[in-house]
């Protein structure tokens, strides 16, 4: 089998397996469907280009997610922000503190509304928080997140804690 047809097989296999993961991650960075599709194609193109340099010592999931995060980090930084999110997260939810026994506003929504609100809130986080939270929500371990972002597991822990706190406050504040 020549390398080209081998790459085609691998690419098809990877894209089939990680399509959902990539689509989910993209949702955490971009709201518009048309741009989401463009980003998906851009990520696919870069995975295809990077295929020959893939080394077996790293996990495919990590490799694919790292390429996606590189594209998305650049996209987010280049994009014009329609809403400036400079507010201190602590200030947003002064009214959000509530009785822990009552269902939170998030819990009282239906599933589709919750998913929409979750994605919207994630897009309001800082870039470094968006990065860790989208990977953690996909069920990745600290080590896997650290491998994707090329940072230490300790730093993943710190960023994830802050990101979770900020996310929960944002979800409750809306």
């Amino acid at each position: 089998m020549n390398p080209s047809s081998n790459y085609q097989e691998i690419f098809t296999e990877w894209m089939t397996e990680y399509e959902r993961l990539l689509r989910h991650i993209i949702t955490g960075f971009e709201a518009k469907t048309a741009i989401q599709d463009e980003l998906f194609q851009e990520i696919a193109l870069n995975i295809w280009r990077a295929l020959p340099s893939f080394r077996q010592d790293s996990a495919v999931k990590t490799f694919v997610a790292r390429i996606a995060h590189n594209i998305l980090a650049t996209h987010v930084s280049k994009a014009v922000k329609s809403v400036k999110i400079d507010q201190d997260i602590d200030e947003i939810s002064q009214d959000a503190e509530q009785d822990q026994t009552q269902p939170t506003p998030y819990q009282s929504l239906d599933k589709q509304q919750r998913q929409t609100r979750l994605a919207k809130s994630i897009r309001q986080l800082k870039l470094e928080q968006q990065q860790v939270i989208t990977l953690a929500l996909e069920g990745m371990s600290y080590q896997e997140i650290a491998d994707v972002l090329v940072i230490t597991t300790n730093l993943v822990g710190v960023r994830l804690q802050r990101a979770k706190a900020a996310l929960i406050k944002l979800m409750e504040a809306v």
Binding site: F11, T12, T16, Q115, L118, A119
Partner: peptide, 20 residues
């Protein structure tokens, strides 16, 4: 709950052959 919601998000199905 968030993890469950996130992972069960509906996604559009891509034609992988066309994408390739």
């Amino acid at each position: 709950e968030m993890t469950q919601d996130w992972q069960s998000q509906p996604t559009t199905k891509t034609d992988i052959a066309k994408l390739l």
